[in-house]
Design a protein around this nucleic acid. Structure first.
Lengths: 242, 242
DNA sequence: TAGTGGTCTAGACCACCCG
DNA sequence: GGGTGGTCTAGACCACTAG
C-alpha cells in the first residue's frame, strides 16, 4: 500500500507523528509506543518501513527499543551538549585571523614530552590572533608533529582550524578529540596581544587530537578575552535531525 | 547466503571492515566506497543488509552518501564536541551536594522577564553547593517556573540536575538546552560560599532549558572555582557507536 | 542511457522476555 | 508459548547523476 501522493517518505511521516505525540505529552517518559506490527497495520506499510522510522526516533534519542519488550519513550538526555568549536563566538559577525608566527622546533624533547608527542623531537608551533571588528578576542596556539614531505601552506596556517590542519599535515587519521575548558590569568605577553590588562581572567580552551591508540597528533590552546568571547552550545538529541 | 556461524550481524561486520580501512588510511577522505550492489555481492548478502551497515557508517560520520553518486569517505568532523554536564568534574571522585536554600518568589515580574519567563510571576529558586572531598567547588543556582500541583521533594532538590528537575516539575516537554560558558569574578557572597577570595575569576556555565516554541522552562547558573573545576569533553563522531 | 542510492514489500527465522 | 524486536531476503520502482 503506497502513499506516494505525498512527497515525503512514509517512515519519515511515521517518525514525525510519534515525535509530535511525545512533544505534546501524549506519549510520556517510559510509555511503550505501539509495536512494529501494529504501526505497520496502522500506516498500511511493511514492517521494515516501520523499523526505518523507529530507528530515526531512536537515533534522535526520543525512544529506546528493547529486544523482546518494545520501544519506550525516553526523556531526552539534555545533558549531552554539542559544541561547535569552529563557529563559536562567530555569530555571523566577521571573524578574522592574524598569523603571529610559525616555528619548527627541533630536538626539544622536553616540550614534546609535555605535549604528549612521545619520541617526537620536531614540532611545528603556530600562533595566531583572532579578531572581531578589529578587536582581538583570542590567542590561539597550535602544536603539531612535524611530518616530512607535508608542507604547510601559508593560507592554511592562517585559516584552518586544528582538525583541518591535522588532517592536511598528517598521514595518521584523527580519531578522537579531547577538550578541557578552564580559566587562567593573562600573562604579560598575552595581555599585550589581546590589548588588555595583565592578570585579567581568561577562558582557556585546550584541545588535543588523537589518532588510534591514544597517539596525540596535535594540540591547540586558545586563550580568550573574557568580555569578548563566550562558548555557546546547544543540546542535540531531540530537535536534531528529525 | 547466511553467515550465521558468527554471532555478530553481517551488516555490523561490513561497517566495521570499512571503518578499519578508513582508520588505516586505505580509504581516504573523499574516496568512494564500493557501491551497495558490489558490497552485497562481496559479502554474499542482500542490498538491504548492506544499506544497514552503510547507515551505521553514515551515522558515525565516517561517510556521506549522495543519491545517484555513491558513498564518500569524509574526514570526521571533530569540531563537534559532546560535553556531559552531569558527570563533569566528577572523575569518579565523590561529589556531594549541600542545599543552601529554596524559595518561591511571587510577583517579581522583573526577575521573571530577566529569566525569559514571560507572563510568569511565580518562580522557584534553589541554590546548592557542590563539594568534592569537603572542598566547595561550585555554586549552582536554579530557576524554575512554578507549577501548581507539582511538589518538589527535598531529596530531588538536593540531587537532581536541571533537566531532571524540569522533567519532574513541569508538564511541558523539554526540547532544547542552550548553554553559554563564560568567565566572571566572584562576588563577596560567592567567595564566602566557595571559601575563596572575592574577585577570583570563576568559570560560569549558564544553562537554559526550553520547551517548544522557545518557551523557557528552567535556568541554571553554575559558578565554578577556577582551580577546582574544569569542563571536559570528548569528540563523538568517529569512535562513538561503532 | 546506465548506474547509483532512496524507498518499500511480503515474507522468513531468530533471540529474547514474560506470564 | 505467544509476543516482541533483530536480522535478512530477493525482489521492485523511483529520483537522481553523469557521460
Amino acid at each position: 500500500m503506497r502513499s506516494r501522493e505525498t512527497l515525503i517518505p512514509v517512515y519519515y511521516r511515521l517518525a514525525e507523528d510519534i515525535k509530535q505525540q511525545i512533544e505534546a505529552g501524549v506519549l510520556k517518559d517510559g510509555d511503550l509506543i505501539p509495536t512494529e506490527t501494529q504501526l505497520g497495520e496502522q500506516y498500511g506499510v511493511s514492517r521494515m518501513t516501520v523499523r526505518q522510522g523507529i530507528s530515526l526516533l531512536a537515533e534522535a534519542g526520543l525512544i529506546e527499543t528493547v529486544k523482546g519488550k518494545g520501544s519506550f519513550v525516553t526523556r531526552p538526555r539534555l545533558n549531552q551538549l554539542v559544541i561547535d568549536l569552529k563557529n563559536n563566538g562567530a555569530d555571523n559577525e566577521q571573524l578574522c585571523y592574524k598569523l603571529i608566527n610559525v616555528n619548527l622546533i627541533r630536538n626539544k624533547s622536553d616540550l614534546a614530552t609535555e605535549l604528549g608527542f612521545i619520541g617526537e623531537t620536531n614540532i611545528i608551533t603556530l600562533k595566531r590572533l583572532l579578531f572581531r571588528k578589529n578587536l582581538p578576542i583570542a590567542i590561539e596556539e597550535k602544536f603539531l608533529r612535524y611530518q616530512k614531505g607535508k608542507p604547510l601552506l601559508e593560507t592554511m596556517l592562517e585559516y584552518a582550524d586544528l582538525p583541518e590542519l591535522v588532517a592536511k599535515h598528517q598521514d595518521s587519521v584523527p580519531v578522537r578529540n579531547d577538550v578541557v575548558i578552564s580559566v587562567s590569568a593573562l600573562s604579560t605577553e598575552q595581555a599585550e596581544l589581546l590589548e588588555a590588562n595583565e592578570g585579567l581572567p581568561a577562558l582557556v580552551v585546550k584541545q588535543v587530537i588523537f589518532a588510534k591508540e591514544d597517539k596525540p597528533l596535535g594540540v591547540s590552546v586558545m586563550v580568550c578575552h573574557k568580555d569578548r568571547f563566550e562558548l555557546k552550545a546547544t543540546s542535540y538529541p531531540i530537535s536534531g535531525r528529525l
